[in-house]
Design a protein around this nucleic acid. Sequence first.
DNA 1: TGCGCCATTATGTCTAGACATAATATGAGG
DNA 2: CCTCATATTATGTCTAGACATAATGGCGCA
Lengths: 226, 226
Amino acid sequence: MNPARRIRDEIAAAIRSGEWRPGDRVPTEQELAARYGCARATVSKALGELAASGLVERRRKAGTFVAHPPVHSAVMTVPDLAELIAARGEAYRWDLLSADTDDVGEASCPGPALRIEGVHMAAGEAFALERRFIALGEVPEALGADFAAEAPGTWLLGHIPWTQARHVIRAVTPTRKEAGLLGVNASAACLELDRTTWRAGRVVTHVRQLFRGDRFDLVADFNAGP
Amino acid sequence: MNPARRIRDEIAAAIRSGEWRPGDRVPTEQELAARYGCARATVSKALGELAASGLVERRRKAGTFVAHPPVHSAVMTVPDLAELIAARGEAYRWDLLSADTDDVGEASCPGPALRIEGVHMAAGEAFALERRFIALGEVPEALGADFAAEAPGTWLLGHIPWTQARHVIRAVTPTRKEAGLLGVNASAACLELDRTTWRAGRVVTHVRQLFRGDRFDLVADFNAGP
DNA sequence: TGCGCCATTATGTCTAGACATAATATGAGG
DNA sequence: CCTCATATTATGTCTAGACATAATGGCGCA
């Protein structure tokens, strides 16, 4: 086992078990270096990783301290729907409802855009509705894509490299039309997921996905540190 | 500006702008060290941080490559309700409905537990319902706490150091009783947030919070890298 | 031709030492 | 007793060099 990894994991374990409490002082780098018989730089690397993951806080001159736990931040994975449904062992299908060019776009995706609507199907039943705008100024090649054959999210993932995104999650009651498409009662709660995606500061796409509340949970794990 | 930080940020910018595409080879550490006029260890540190944040992938002998973007993972912050509401400029209040000891607990929090129910109020109106189990085997001091004066989440945050947690988010239709407590129509969609919290592998608490769908959105940002 | 071994190569990690930086503690002066 | 300058100290970062490790590509042998 690496010295750096060992130091990092042992300190993380002491913090997570409650042995070292928030505010407690972590031994100085020199003390740890002596205890583990390694160079100070090695200890510093381990503490740097712990600080990056939020488990400790380092202050010059003062020393290193066990951080106070955050309210709750968690890493949430929003899965690719095709993969998610395949993982359940169900057949996945994307049904395109409409695809039109639109010179105006909408508030969160202004300018000329491609407007796409469709349904994600699992085991022959509607699973989620999708309404998407793709900014043609950023992704002109979207005009040549066949969104009847491939869901736009899947296509974009293969054509647009690293982006930033913001997700907004809320519970809503579907409109009558949406309820019909999803095959649920008009009073059934649905989970709405709005995602806006930027590249280099400019909006690439905005998508609103509406999930059947009875078939979809978002799961987020909070696991500070490595 | 730090050399390490500069290298890291310039490479991250090249990736996020699309200049370097997924699968592209990043120059070797030696080349980068020569280009930036610094030691190889400095380059290695920068690349290590980029790899930790998922922007690049490093393989021995093969080199460093721009990673393929993940489906979508995002850091979600589940706020402290008291703080959230205070930030909106509204008055926050916690109303305790009941607090009983329970020898059995429930599935996700087995064993002797404290069962607490209450309402989070904002500006005089119900905002969220909470039903919580606190494992007395792990947190016996919870018996001495005054949960009429302080919301159990707030109390736990101050008494239980670093933990792991899992969140499950779904859209539900409230029961008639829940709708009444929240002051919404029985057909209004609500956002349910289930959080189970562990310390050192043992369940500390399980909480179910039910939010008014029209008053609460979860926001998650995806911003790989520093 | 095909298989397996080995040299090469790029990353992974560490060391010992150096200097920078920032915040605290201390002491001098008002 | 308070205030400000200074010394101290722990972290922050870097360097140059070394060795470890793993995967790849090519070479040699069958």
